[in-house]
């Protein structure tokens, strides 16, 4: 899907395009007292309980942290979800933009990319984020 056909970001406060339309950054908070990063943004640090948090962004680069594949039930597609670890230590969960036989290896470099969720029932199509093997980005 071309960028201009892509639906709106599902939660605008969670992500922004990074230098174009093929990569995303996640909008997070950084604690100025203990350096903990947290996504999505939070006024209170979950690590030290401090309230001295400032806006920051995570990615687009990250390290692939883990994953699972949940087989389809019925006629649907398998669901591939995983986690990525960002500079500063935050681990974020999300979709993986890969077929189930091409999932990145744990520890491999990934990037945060737009990922279109199709309309389903009462839900409109929307764009969220996913993790994709870095060398595939922009392919």
């Amino acid at each position: 899907m071309s960028p201009d056909q892509r639906p709106d970001l599902i939660i605008a406060e969670w992500m922004e395009y990074a230098g174009g339309s093929e990569l995303l950054r996640l909008l997070a908070s950084r604690c100025e007292d203990c350096e903990t990063r947290v996504f999505p943004r939070a006024a209170t640090c979950p690590s030290c309980s401090g309230r001295n948090t400032v806006d920051t962004a995570l990615g687009p680069d990250a390290e692939f942290y883990s994953f699972t594949v949940m087989p389809a039930r019925g006629d649907g597609e398998p669901t591939v979800v995983g986690q990525a670890r960002f500079e500063g230590g935050a681990v974020v969960r999300g979709y993986i933009d890969a077929d189930e036989d091409a999932i990145p290896s744990i520890g491999e470099a990934v990037e945060v990319v737009p990922f279109v969720l199709p309309a389903a029932g009462d839900l409109e199509a929307a764009t969220t984020f996913a993790f994709r093997r870095k060398e595939q980005a922009g392919a």
């Binding site: 599902i10 939660i11 999505p40 979800v81 969960r93 969220t128």
Partner: peptide, 11 residues
Amino acid sequence: QLAARATGPAP
């Protein structure tokens, strides 16, 4: 609901 949809199924 939006947050759950944004990050995928999480049983």
